[in-house]
Design a binder for these strands. Structure first.
Length: 205
DNA sequence: TGCCAGGCCCTCTTTAGGGCCTT
């Protein structure tokens, strides 16, 4: 596993649940190396059936756009190569993990990284934020945005910026030189009340 | 057949219910 790099990813899908037959329609991702975006991945994919008007409206991805796209299995095979050997991050990772697992299982593929969740971290770190939607947190942190959320690569880019902002905030509260992925994972699992205690254990005197 | 997400997290909790977040 590469300790200095990370993939931040986001799926657009036909709905909320692969267990109910929902499929991925777009994957967007950026690779962060030492805090800098060094690679990008973005592809639409044809799920083999029409998407609802709600999804067309929500994402701006139309059935016409998907009719020209490569099928899911082709795109996901390329994406599986892209994420090889990398830890992964998503906003509400349990959602994206379900679709990643489901789509890769269909092509008998796999990945070896751990998932980090920017939503869970933000709930510990930004307890006074109005809410913990991606768009709200981007505004809350004063990160510049075009406001055009709900496309995969754009949301992945914004999640990456949020992730870097959170690493900065963790660093300032702990005085560590570099925030290890393992510390962020511990933060996501600790209770809100124990955040200060967790950070105190990392203070360099 | 009929149902239709699911994991996290709070609280009027743990023998449960409901809001948040993702599409």
């Amino acid at each position: 596993m590469n300790a200095n790099s990370l993939i931040i990813l986001d799926f657009e899908t036909t709905g909320l649940s692969p267990n109910n037959g929902d499929r991925a329609i777009e994957i967007g991702a950026v690779k962060l190396e030492n805090g800098v975006v060094t690679e990008r991945f973005q592809e639409l994919m044809n799920p083999g059936r029409p998407v609802s008007y709600f999804i067309e409206d929500y994402t701006g991805i139309t059935n016409e756009m998907l009719s020209d796209a490569a099928p899911c299995h082709e795109v996901m095979a390329r994406f599986a190569d892209f994420i090889q050997g990398q830890n992964l991050v998503a906003h509400n990772a349990s959602f994206d993990k379900r679709f990643l697992d489901s789509e890769l299982k269909r092509i008998s593929s796999n990945y070896d990284g751990q998932f980090g969740c920017s939503l869970l971290v933000s709930r510990r770190l930004y307890q006074t934020a109005p809410n913990h939607k991606l768009g709200t947190l981007i505004n809350y942190k004063g990160i510049a945005s075009k406001g055009s959320f709900h496309r995969a690569l754009y949301d992945a880019e914004m999640t990456a910026k949020l992730w870097l902002a959170m690493l900065d905030d963790i660093q300032q509260q702990t005085n560590v030189d570099e925030v290890p992925f393992s510390l962020v994972q511990k933060l996501a699992k600790t209770t809100k009340a124990n955040v200060a205690k967790l950070f105190a254990n990392y203070v360099v005197s």
